[in-house]
C-alpha cells in the first residue's frame, strides 16, 4: 500500500519537475512547480514526517512560488516574445546531466538501502525542534543572525532615508 503511494507521488513529483523545465510559459512552469512541491510533501507524509511536509508547503508553495508568480505577473512578457531555447548543445548537455543524475541516484540507492518502515520520530515537530536546539544550536543561531542581516540590508537598500 505504502509502496504504491510512494510510486504514485514520486512519479507525480518527477513528472511535474520535467514539466517545469520543458513548458514554454513561465506561469505554467510555476504551477507545475507547485504540483511537484505538493507531491514531495506527500512523500514526507508517507515517511511520517508531517511537520516537514507542512513546512515544505507553507514555505515553498505558499511563499517562494507566490514570489515567483508575482515576478512573472509584474514582468508579464507576451507569449509571442518568450525566448525559445534553440541551442542543440544545451539540450544534449541536459540529457547527459539527467542521465548521470539517474545513474548516481541508482548507485546511492543500492549502497544505502532505503529503510522499509518509517523511522519514528524523525521530521515530527518534537524531533525537529530538539535537533535544532541541541545538536545544531550554533548553526541555527548563526543562520538567524544571517537572515536578520539580510532583512536589515534589504530595508537599507530599499529605503535610503529610513
Amino acid at each position: 500500500m505504502e509502496a504504491l503511494f510512494f510510486i504514485l507521488f514520486g512519479a507525480i513529483a518527477v513528472g511535474g519537475a520535467v514539466m517545469v523545465v520543458t513548458r514554454r510559459h513561465p506561469m505554467v512552469s510555476a504551477l507545475y512547480l507547485i504540483l511537484t512541491l505538493f507531491a514531495v510533501a506527500a512523500l514526507f507524509v508517507l515517511r511520517h514526517a508531517h511537520f516537514l511536509a507542512a513546512i515544505q508547503v507553507i514555505i515553498y508553495a505558499g511563499a517562494v512560488v507566490v514570489l515567483f508568480i508575482f515576478v512573472i505577473m509584474l514582468i508579464n512578457v507576451p507569449e509571442s516574445r518568450l525566448p525559445v531555447e534553440r541551442a542543440t548543445i544545451v539540450r544534449v548537455a541536459g540529457v547527459i546531466a539527467a542521465g548521470l543524475l539517474i545513474l548516481e541516484s541508482a548507485v546511492l540507492a543500492r549502497r544505502f538501502a532505503m529503510p522499509k518502515a518509517p523511522v519514528s520520530g524523525v521530521g515530527t515537530v518534537e524531533a525537529v525542534g530538539r535537533a535544532l536546539f541541541t545538536d545544531y544550536l550554533l548553526a541555527f543561531e548563526v543562520t538567524s543572525v544571517l537572515l536578520l542581516a539580510a532583512v536589515i540590508g534589504a530595508i537599507a537598500l530599499s529605503n535610503k532615508k529610513l
Partner: peptide
C-alpha cells in the same frame, strides 16, 4: 486529527493565494 493541525491549515490555505493570483493574471 492531524498532529500538525494548525500548520496543516496554514499550509493548505496558502493555495488560496496562488488561485487568486492566477485569477487576477
Amino acid at each position: 486529527d492531524l498532529n500538525i493541525g494548525i500548520y496543516y491549515v496554514m499550509a493548505v490555505t496558502s493555495l488560496v493565494v496562488v488561485g487568486i493570483l492566477l485569477a487576477g493574471w
